[in-house]
């Protein structure tokens, strides 16, 4: 299928990254958010993101990109109306079913029949999302990694009704964005988050129980295991609020107490210590 215009729903950290990479790959992009403030910030961040892209990709020999041209390919709007021109939609709204469900109901009405929907979710089952539409065979999951412009591999999730055509179109779109997809079947948290969220949560319990410090936890992963980043720095990067939401979704989906969020995590989120984006999580960040 021919994809020219891609709708991106949600101008948070993930939506901004997705819109940037699509614009860099010459797609026309419609970026929708409920907040004008978020859209204004998105425009700034995408401009800087494109401008600095070649600096951050030292693995590739890139020339500086035209930031103004990339931003000009993006329509920033609070209106879902322009989604009637979308061939493919990537949804990045908050990981709460009560927020996602009405978004899909609206998209299903507004978008043309051929349009495919990709949920950029880290935990909510794709089959459940697909059921909120009249086109479940055209719905799949794409779990982008953060920061989106720098992470070249994603987890691609096949929902119960997702067809091979839908998967193929999504893989082709990803390839044109310079990304590869690893296809897995639908299950809460898929592969990545089912393992990662438990690891992060257990790391937080270790700090909560005064077994050791955040620095020590992460050093054991970086220095003993050779991981690039420890679980707590990873949690700060993802955002502790997102970690909490993901754990709550897993807890609810599996009805298994092993996913119960650590009380320290909940307290930090309530206190506004959401990680890198707030300047403070398990570690301190200067802006």
């Amino acid at each position: 299928m021919n994809i020219e215009t891609v709708g991106v729903i949600g101008a948070g950290v993930m939506g901004i990254g997705v819109a940037q990479v699509l614009a860099q790959a010459d797609y026309k992009v419609t970026l929708v958010d409920v907040s004008e403030v978020a859209l204004a910030r998105a425009e700034q961040e995408i401009r800087q993101g494109v401008r600095f892209y070649h600096l951050l990709r030292q693995d590739q020999e890139l020339k500086p990109l035209d930031a103004a041209a990339a931003v000009a390919r993006i329509t920033f709007t609070t209106d879902m109306g322009p989604m009637q021109g979308a061939d493919f939609v990537i949804e990045n709204v908050t990981e709460k079913w009560a927020v996602k469900q009405p978004v899909y109901a609206t998209l299903d009405q507004v978008c043309p029949p051929h349009c495919l929907f990709a949920a950029n979710t880290s935990a909510i089952p794709i089959t459940q999302i697909a059921a909120a539409t009249q086109r479940p065979s055209q719905v799949l999951g794409i779990h982008f990694m953060n920061p989106v412009p720098l992470k070249d591999t994603v987890e691609l999730i096949r929902g119960y009704h997702t067809t091979e055509e839908t998967l193929a179109a999504a893989l082709a779109l990803l390839a044109s964005m310079g990304k590869m997809g690893i296809v897995v079947n639908d299950s809460p948290g898929f592969v990545s988050n089912r393992v990662l969220m438990l690891t992060v949560n257990e790391a937080i319990f270790l700090v909560h129980e005064n077994v050791t410090t955040p620095e020590n936890v992460d050093q054991i992963f970086t220095q003993c295991f050779g991981h690039k980043m420890g679980p707590l720095a990873t949690a700060d990067l993802i955002g502790l609020d997102t970690i909490l939401l993901s754990l709550e979704v897993l807890y609810e989906q599996f009805s298994d107490p092993k996913f119960r969020p650590c009380p320290l995590l909940r307290q930090m989120v309530n206190a506004g210590l959401t990680g890198r984006k707030s300047g403070q999580g398990f570690f301190t960040y200067s802006s």
Binding site: Q48, R51, F52, H54, L55, L56, P64
Partner: peptide
């Protein structure tokens, strides 16, 4: 590097053009 570019632009009131973004 991004933070550093934004810092010099703000602190010294200069614009780092694409040809200097190395």
């Amino acid at each position: 590097a991004m933070q550093l570019v934004l810092f010099v632009e703000k602190e010294f009131g200069i614009q780092v053009e694409n040809e200097d973004l190395e």
